[in-house]
Design a protein around this nucleic acid. Sequence first.
DNA 1: ACCACGATGTATCGGACCGATACATCGCAC
DNA 2: GTGCGATGTATCGGTCCGATACATCGTGGT
Lengths: 212, 212
Amino acid sequence: MLELAILGLLQEASMHGYELRKELTAKLGAIRAAFSYGSLYPTLRRLQAAGWIAEAAETPATAEEVPALTSRRGRVVYTITAEGKERFAQLIAQTGPETYGDSGFGVHFAFFSRTDQATRLRILEGRRRTIEERREGLRDMLGRAAERLDAYTLELQRHGLEACEREVRWLEELIANERSGRAPTVPQEGTAGGRREDNSPPPPGESRKERP
Amino acid sequence: MLELAILGLLQEASMHGYELRKELTAKLGAIRAAFSYGSLYPTLRRLQAAGWIAEAAETPATAEEVPALTSRRGRVVYTITAEGKERFAQLIAQTGPETYGDSGFGVHFAFFSRTDQATRLRILEGRRRTIEERREGLRDMLGRAAERLDAYTLELQRHGLEACEREVRWLEELIANERSGRAPTVPQEGTAGGRREDNSPPPPGESRKERP
DNA sequence: ACCACGATGTATCGGACCGATACATCGCAC
DNA sequence: GTGCGATGTATCGGTCCGATACATCGTGGT
């Protein structure tokens, strides 16, 4: 999961660890706490060893903005490699049970603008399936096994059930949107201006922003 | 977390691993997937080594119901010890940051009927605080940093924000209920009949056994 | 002039937990 | 009688977390 997230973020811009973690938190804050440094740094090392990412020279490029303040230090800036982009494309396209869990789904969803529509649909439907099953489990519990549970546990289940129902509705909307061509609002091109050799096919219905 | 959950469940009834996991799933299904055997069995061993739980002889007690079918096998039934009960009381009463995370809160909440009111209140308020902070983070993101994020990520944040708002409202209700004396419905005494030497002060609204 | 403090930044260690997997037995349906 | 799904115990490798350590920077207070 972390591997996928790092590769995805570095595709938008080169960054050092600290920055990466902040972006991670910003992008995934809704779905999971954040990855800790205890997994981030080892993973960076692993990705570098595998050749998916590489260390970059400090502050040479993208001049003008923020001249050279705090120039080089211990900071290690990572850049994704061509192999890394391939790896990302492969990871983002393959789906499985772990794609539908809370954490996995969140990460995949956060990179939907780099995912082709067929895969998006597959993921949304898989997630819906997963949540529907969780929902049914809770319904059964609140029906049949209710008298075995104390009031607090029951209340927890009730609240969980409501959350499930709500998420299923949300997913339904997203799926309908996806099928009708247009994205929830609009996928937009990442920071990286150039480079169009990445596979992700431009989504069909590129339309307007939300905020009316 | 798992330690607390096991101790709590064994206080209601002696069980073997498989059964324990099913109960765990039933009780915590709303908040987290389930603990896997890969953590369950090692933890059982650890608890046994610490003297909090002990192996019990198979099917000797609680006769009548289900005579002796499938009598003894490889099944290992665990029973909580007096020290284990003390340990549970200590764990359930102490609060901290980890108590307010998704998983920690869920487990603590699931055993609220064995928690004194002051602690319940402390946990609910801590949890509320935590979610409120998460909520503020998401609000900031959707306000200031919105243009940096793509439409899908934005939609994820929006959905997360709504979930936070909903949970805060839920917590408010629980807190109000808690303050006004009555629990969501009513905490009930566990299976364990004897032993009143454990510290947990009898909650105010102590009523009768489960099965009415 | 000094320095305390919080943000930035890299890094490691132990431990909790997961997912896959391997077995072995039971009761039941075909 | 036989295969199959539920019951049941157990381990292994790997991911991730939480705490911790340490060093530098800019800022503001005194």
